[in-house]
Computed example of a mutant assay.
Amino acid sequence: MLSFPPPLVIDYPNIDPVLVEIGPFPIRWYALAYFFGILQAYFYARALVGRLRAPISRQHLDDFILWATLGIVAGGRLGYVLFYNPGRFLAEPLSIFALWDGGMSFHGGLTGVIVAAILFTRANGIPPMRFGDMLACTAPIGLLLGRLANFINGELWGRPTDVPWAMVFPADPLQVPRHPSQLYEAALEGVALFALVNVLAYTTRLGQRRPGVLTGVFLAGYGAARFAVEYVRSPDPQLEGLARSFLSMGQLLSLPMILAGAAIIVWAWRRAPQPEPRDRATPRQGAA
Rank of each mutant, 00 (worst) to 15 (best):
Y231S: 10
A225T: 03
T69M: 13
L193G: 08
L70Y: 04
I141C: 09
A68Q: 11
D16F: 08
P170T: 06
N124M: 03
R278S: 11
I65G: 03
L94N: 09
D162T: 15
L143I: 05
L94G: 12
E230M: 13
A262H: 01
V168Q: 07
R122Y: 05
R88Q: 12
S181P: 06
W100E: 15
S254W: 06
L110V: 13
E21P: 00
L239R: 07
L252T: 11
E185D: 14
A263D: 01
M249G: 14
L259G: 03
F120G: 01
G50F: 03
P7L: 02
L82K: 00
A195W: 11
F89K: 06
T203H: 14
R226M: 02
I126G: 06
P256Q: 10
A45I: 01
S248H: 09
Q208R: 15
F169G: 05
W29A: 06
P277M: 02
S57N: 03
N153F: 04
Q208Y: 06
D16G: 11
I22Q: 03
L90I: 15
L19I: 12
N124G: 01
G103T: 07
V199G: 15
L145R: 03
R88W: 15
S57L: 03
M167G: 10
L90D: 08
V9M: 02
D11L: 11
P86Q: 11
G50L: 12
F89E: 13
